[in-house]
Design a binder for these strands. Structure first.
Length: 525
RNA sequence: GUCCCUUUCGUCUAGAGGCCUAGGACACCGGGUUUUCAUCCCGGCAACACGGGUUCGAAUCCCGUAGGGGAUGCCA
């Protein structure tokens, strides 16, 4: 049977990198196993879901090249099927209302008393009860108070199914209640019992378990679980039932999601069973945390997929980086093509500890992808980040010069010194570079030579060298002051090529402007 | 509080009892190339959370402790 996975976001704002990483892992899994990757929009929270968020989401998926194989399902349109499923569950005795079932009360899913194959016994358990508490057995579950540290009362309420074979004891040690002979009465007739004087209970502890594709064997005792609401009192289905129903509808075979869902998974497995469907396989992937090591919240402004796009990250680089967060191919490869990732991806290789998002590594990865772009492609991208006021004819030459120095496209805004005359100098640095009189003298001399002589790559270079010799400046020490004067920045491309693009007049004007300031004193800024 | 998960350089990771004197990458620091910048090359710094076991041998298996995260909703 072919694998079918899905990405099921709720459209309540911008798409977060943590979410999109879930999509990436699902997509990679589907492509690796030649299965289907489906998209489902969980828009049941009408208050917070917006069309704008849906559009943003689809845009992000397209940008990252995450394609889906079947038409999108909108959860809000599936409501009838959710309620029909609840109806069937009620008939089968898996769902119930309290208070005799009048309208306006929520519908609960009863964690089944028996017949569940995902449940196993782990032996007999005993719980001592707090003397001041009352043990209650109700159709919704069992409530009691245990003894915590320092005699503290610890409240407890759990589903009935957690207490098979339960016996209740009084102070004399006599059994005063056995659940097996009363369970029908409790469930079918909504009968409740109350034992103020109970001192302890014994029962068969059972746990629900599954084998997680990433985390391995997972289990949780049933006496720590509660019946859950599946239909609100306003008649709308909640996440759990909608999610499971839609997974059944879409015939999902593998659910790969964030590990904030593991607790839900225990419930969902029970729901699948109660609806008579085979349970999908689960894989819970670790969350990503921010630079402070804390979970990303929607407040972390930098964490939206759209922001990365706007700042000038390549989708392939972001995709590659995100795929490597919590997963590795097992060898030393990091920069990988999409096909290589598909080929190497397995859930077994996904880590189960949270990974910290590192912008440095992303930047480096992005730089790697930029470096290998064909010049024409780079130019196309560069145009998007260039100031529209810059003369377009010069951009290709500047782009060619700067490509190997670009890590993120938003750095392109710093190319302005190639195009317009007004440079905002870092006066402190300028003052430092032009502190020595011989540098000032040499700069003036060089500028004069360029004004009156040739201005080519060769002559620029030659003048620089000659002037250094003439003014007894150590080799190479004139380059930096000149660079700073003509461009205003300490880094950049080769100086001769840079000056050529800036142009003779502007270079010379800038140098003299700096020399004037050197004479009259650099202003502060 | 209770339950569940998790822990290898600052960060992402490799590691399936001996191949580990713990490997790679980013970041950082030095050096080389470039008479300047970036690339590039070479080198350096730097980790098995802690404590007990099991074993001839533990990063690896078991138990405990501590830190981190999650869940405990008529949110998804």
């Amino acid at each position: 049977m072919e694998n079918r996975v899905r990405f099921a976001p709720s459209p309540t704002g911008q798409v977060h990198i943590g979410n999109i990483r879930t999509a990436i892992f699902n997509w990679l899994f589907a492509r690796h196993t030649q299965g289907k990757f489906l998209l489902r929009i969980e828009d049941t929270d009408i208050e917070r879901s917006t069309q704008e968020a849906i559009d943003t989401l689809l845009e992000c998926l397209e940008w990252l090249g995450i394609d889906y194989d079947e038409p999108i399902i909108y959860q809000s349109q599936m409501r009838d099927s959710h309620l029909a499923a609840v109806e069937r569950m009620t008939e089968a005795g898996h769902a119930y209302k309290v208070d005799g079932g009048e309208a306006g009360s929520p519908i609960y899913f009863r964690i089944p008393w028996d017949g569940m194959e995902a449940i196993r016994s782990v032996g007999e358990a005993t719980i001592e009860l707090h003397p001041e508490g009352t043990l209650e057995i109700t159709p919704r579950g069992i409530n009691f108070i245990t003894i915590g540290k320092g005699d503290k009362q610890v409240e407890n309420s759990s589903c009935l199914a957690g207490f098979r074979q339960m016996k209740v004891y009084d102070a004399s040690g006599a059994v005063i209640f056995e659940i097996e002979s009363n369970i029908q009465d409790v469930i079918e007739n909504q009968r409740a019992f109350s034992f103020p004087g109970a001192t302890k209970i014994t029962f068969e502890r059972r746990e629900i378990f599954f084998r997680d594709l990433i985390k391995g064997e997972m289990s949780k005792p049933l006496d720590n679980m509660k019946d859950l609401i599946i239909v609100r009192s306003d008649g709308t289905p909640v996440f759990h039932i909608a999610n499971v129903c839609d997974d059944i509808t879409q015939e999902i075979t593998h659910i790969v999601r964030g590990d904030d869902h593991v607790e839900n998974t225990y419930r969902h497995i029970l729901l699948f069973h109660a609806m008579g469907h085979q349970v999908p396989q689960y894989g819970h992937m670790p969350m990503i945390v921010n630079a402070a090591g804390k979970p990303f919240s929607k407040r972390d402004g930098d964490a939206f997929v759209g922001d990365f796009r706007e700042k000038g990250y390549l989708s392939e680089a972001l995709y590659n980086y995100l795929a490597l967060l919590g997963w590795s191919p097992g060898d030393d490869r990091e920069k990988m093509t999409r096909d290589e990732m598909i080929e190497a991806f397995t859930l077994e290789r996904v880590k189960s500890a949270p990974a910290q998002f590192d912008i440095n590594k992303l930047n480096n990865m992005n730089g790697l992808y930029i470096a290998e772009m064909p010049a024409d492609d780079f130019l196309v991208q560069a145009k998007l980040f260039a100031d529209p006021a810059w003369p377009a004819d010069k951009l290709p030459q500047v782009a060619a010069l700067m490509q190997s120095r670009t890590k993120i496209f938003n750095q392109i805004s710093s190319w302005s010194y190639f195009f317009d005359g007004d440079i905002e100098y870092d006066m402190k640095n300028l003052a430092k570079q032009y502190k020595k009189p011989e540098i000032c003298k040499a700069a003036a001399m060089a500028a004069e030579k360029w004004r009156n002589g040739e201005f080519t790559a060769e002559s620029i270079h030659q003048v620089l060298e000659e002037t250094e010799t003439a003014c007894e400046i150590p080799h190479g020490k004139l380059f930096q002051p000149i660079r700073l004067a003509v461009s205003g920045v300490a880094g950049g491309a080769e100086l001769d090529a840079t000056m050529l693009l800036i142009g003779r007049d502007r270079c010379i004007n800038n140098i003299f402007r700096v020399l004037e300031m050197a004479q009259s004193g650099f202003p502060e800024n």
